[in-house]
Amino acid sequence: MKVPIEVVAIDCLMVRLFEVIDQANMPWMLAAVARLREHFASTLIDLVPSYTTLMVHYDLTQLNPNQARELIHAALTDLAPDPHANGTHHVLPVWYDPSVGPELSLLAKRSGLSVREVIACHSQREYQVFALGFAPGFAFMGLVEEIIAAPRLNTPRKRVAAGSVGIAERQTAAYPVVSPGGWNLIGRTPSLLFDRQREGYSLMQPGDSVSFASIDHAEFIRLGGDDTPLTGQA
């Protein structure tokens, strides 16, 4: 598999595996991750997969850039997905409500659907975790139905509550920690998405799949959810 390799930093190379975002990419991405870990062994510092690219951070004291490129090409030769390599499936309970999802009604209006139909559209689909980034444990997932896709807010919020579930374009995600954010918020999950006591810290990893399960307010509170309202651009 001959792929373009771009320089990111003196000790980082970006492998461009694909040109377009597609759920079918992930088995190939996971196979590439496994092969690169095997070939780089102790010289590897980190691998960061994304929708179409894979960043390789290597130890410059053990490899020079040309050697790193050679290892990448060797690792990707005759690459094929492993049919037995399946990620973990997660079910995240979500309380869909305008008090914690201020854009829920807006998405309904934009799409021509009822609020109930927007919730069903979002929760009745299985999503692929493509990448982690932006904040610790923040999993970029896709792809949502086009009818409920929406651009990011023109003005990001200064504070988004942990657990907030949102949509940006055809991506969906749940904020693992309190942070700024510009996604369209439609609900909140009580699930602990980032935990320093957990191996790997993040609940979800690239290659995992996720389903959202609609729950009522009582169940949300029973599961430890914080129902403090979030409105407007606060």
Rank of each mutant, 00 (worst) to 15 (best):
R110S: 09
F130C: 04
Y175N: 05
M1Q: 12
A173N: 00
A149L: 07
E70V: 13
G142S: 06
S209P: 08
Q233E: 13
A173P: 01
L92T: 09
I45L: 08
T155E: 14
T53I: 05
L30Q: 14
V3G: 01
G137D: 07
L223K: 14
R152D: 00
V3M: 06
L106G: 02
S164F: 02
G142C: 04
P156E: 10
V160M: 02
T228F: 10
E38D: 15
G163A: 15
R125D: 13
H73R: 13
E126C: 13
W183Q: 04
I186Q: 02
T77Q: 13
T52E: 04
G112R: 00
I72H: 05
S202T: 07
P98H: 02
L132C: 06
L47H: 08
G163E: 15
A213R: 13
F138K: 01
S105E: 05
D78C: 11
R196A: 07
A120F: 03
E169M: 12
E19V: 15
V56Y: 02
T88E: 12
L113S: 07
M14G: 13
L106W: 01
V165G: 04
F220G: 03
P49I: 02
M14W: 10
R69N: 04
Q62I: 08
A108W: 02
V178A: 11
F212I: 06
T52I: 06
A139H: 03
G182W: 00
A213Q: 13
A74F: 08
L113I: 11
D22C: 03
A162S: 10
L63K: 01
I5T: 09
V210S: 10
R69V: 01
Q67K: 06
Q197R: 15
G87W: 12
Y201A: 08
R69E: 08
G182H: 00
D97M: 00
Q171W: 05
R157F: 05
L203M: 15
A34W: 05
V178K: 09
S202A: 14
R125T: 15
D82R: 09
S105K: 03
R188E: 06
E70S: 14
L71G: 01
E6F: 14
H57K: 04
S214N: 12
F138D: 03
L47M: 10
P156Y: 10
T61V: 05
F138A: 04
I148E: 04
R110A: 11
K109V: 01
P151A: 05
A173G: 06
S111E: 04
K158Y: 07
G112P: 00
L17C: 12
V100K: 00
D46K: 10
P156S: 12
V91H: 15
G112Q: 03
S99T: 02
I72D: 05
H73G: 08
R222F: 00
L153H: 00
F40H: 02
S191P: 01
V3C: 07
G101F: 00
A41D: 15
A41H: 13
A9Y: 09
R16E: 08
Q62P: 08
E146Q: 07
G166F: 08
L153P: 02
L106R: 02
F220I: 07
M1N: 11
E219Y: 03
F194E: 11
T231L: 15
F40G: 01
Y127F: 09
A162L: 06
S202C: 09
I45V: 07
M26L: 12
H90S: 14
L193F: 13
P136E: 11
V94K: 03
P176G: 14
D97I: 00
M26F: 01
